[in-house]
Design a protein around this nucleic acid. Structure first.
Lengths: 298, 298
DNA sequence: CGTCGTGATACCGAATTGCTATCAGGGGTC
DNA sequence: GACCCCTGATAGCAATTCGGTATCACGACG
């Protein structure tokens, strides 16, 4: 069976007339007769009742008409689905992100924008800290990740810097340091400090320590922990927190953040993916995310 | 797009190798390359990543493979459905029947047998008395009917006699006439009679009356009614019922039926259909019903 | 009883399809 | 590094299929 035969069959069934159907197909009537006959021979069933008044569908013909119409429609849609898949408007996308970034506009706007641009892409969001993200990317369990730092092999991975964050100080609203809009590093010398742990975000920790060293101050770090743990400990009054500015979207009303002059924007947030990944969905996502930044910049 | 291209595409996707796919399709490799290329050009999308190691599906190709497999399966099934429709093993069948026949093995066995033979046929059963059945057949609302008598135009309708029924006497179990196994028409001369109405089954009524006339007896018919009404009136002791033997399957334990020598088998039960009806399902049904009778006769 | 319109058939040219031979190019081997 | 072997792509030719024209058989209609 050939698709041409199904097309001709549907046209003939609609016209109930070989000549008119042939005209609408822009072929001659004998050619149509032959194709219909071939179809009937293959299926082994008469599809039309021919008469000098025209051609009427048989019961079997009516059955085939229903099927053929659906099939032809299905084929057209399959072609369109294939095109959309190639354009990255369809498929699956697994995105990891540092849980610290949840609520960050970088993440939420990227995702919601891409959802609008490619509604048929099934997006899976997976909260992970940096190291597991890298591993998940390597293991093909994740297609892209929003993560801090990128101690990465440029041959294995590609990335785009999404934002640059600095270390900030977090204190309770009623803390003495909360009165000033900007702090200097000397202000922290005598404070009990709660910092994001070295094992969690090594780059961040090292850059903070470097700032203290440069100022010849020995910081009194009483606790290392994850960013969110630091926030809640600060809230209990345990000390002064040092966290990434990326956390500003997750701050509670009881806390305030203050910049420190000597803390330079050091930690970057990057969108990372496998360099070898040629997935259309992924590159469509990267393009959308990049476009968002450009729009914002205007 | 042509079906050949989809077939070739699926084979190539499965083999992940143009040469092997071509071999399995029993064509040469360049012919396959050309068809795949034509398909890719039409859709406007690369379906394979060619390499000296073979051909791997692209994302778009995987999308199309899923669709193409389903479509090809659908086409094969459509052909089979069409064949089954032509063979009368699929479709719709609306069968009318005299409600007196409900429970009659003639009806129940025919239907259940045909259900087994053609499970995909949607059967609709419509209880109707004779005259509405004829009208429903004419109005194309019904495809066939089981009915009493056939005062029919042989050019318009065709039929097959399914059984021949005689008039019987129905009396309560404790009635004096119930003691004898066979009655003579003289026994009914002094009895109040309840007979199926002339307007309901004219042929039946006339044949009963003819039997009385032949015996020079004037029957005392105290009530004419439908068969089932007659049965319930007899049960109240109102009189002696005269009904068709077709009712024996609907008799209650309180009643007994007795043959009357002079009542000859007169009323036939026929399966009737439109002579012009070429429906495969209908003729398949007729064939099945007829076959049942033959099997039973052996 | 002829005319009209229906679909079927016969035959021929054109397009499509398939085949053989050959090419370009990436791995693997010595 | 030169070679060999495999991959798929390309070119040119043969076979098949498809479409077009001319014509036929047949039933409806006037």
């Amino acid at each position: 069976m050939e698709l041409r035969q199904l097309r001709y069959f549907v046209a003939t069934a609609e016209a109930q007339h070989f000549r008119r159907a042939a005209a609408s197909l822009r072929i001659a009537q004998p050619a149509l007769s032959r194709q219909i006959k071939a179809l009937e021979t293959e299926i082994g069933v008469a599809l039309f009742e021919r008469s000098p008044q025209g051609a009427k569908l048989t019961e079997a013909g009516r059955s085939l008409l229903i099927d053929a119409t659906r099939i032809m429609n299905d084929i057209a849609e399959a072609a369109e689905r294939t095109r959309r898949t190639a354009r990255g408007q369809r498929g699956r996308l697994r995105i990891a992100f540092s849980d610290v970034l949840s609520g960050h506009p970088l993440l939420t706007r990227s995702i919601s924008r891409f959802r609008r641009a490619a509604p048929d892409v099934e997006i899976t969001l997976l909260p992970m800290v940096t190291t597991p993200q890298i591993e998940a990317l390597r293991a093909l369990q994740v297609d892209a990740g929003f993560l801090f730092h990128r101690p990465l092999d440029a041959r294995e991975f590609a990335w785009r810097e999404m934002s640059r964050e600095a270390a900030l100080v977090v204190v309770p609203r009623n803390h003495p340091l909360a009165r000033r809009r900007t702090l200097r590093i000397e202000d922290l010398g005598d404070q009990p400090l709660l910092c994001v742990g070295e094992h969690i975000n090594p780059g961040f920790y090292r850059s903070v320590l470097a700032a203290f060293t440069a100022a010849s101050i020995t910081p009194r770090i009483v606790q290392q922990a994850g960013s969110l743990v630091v926030l809640s400990l600060v809230e209990t009054g345990m000390g002064v927190g040092i966290v990434s500015s990326a956390l500003r979207w997750r701050i509670t009303p009881q806390l305030v953040m203050r910049p420190v002059e000597e803390f330079l924007p050091s930690t970057s947030v990057d969108l990372v993916w496998r360099r070898s990944d040629r997935s259309a969905v992924l590159h469509s996502f990267i393009a959308t995310v990049t476009a968002r930044k450009e729009n914002k910049a205007r």
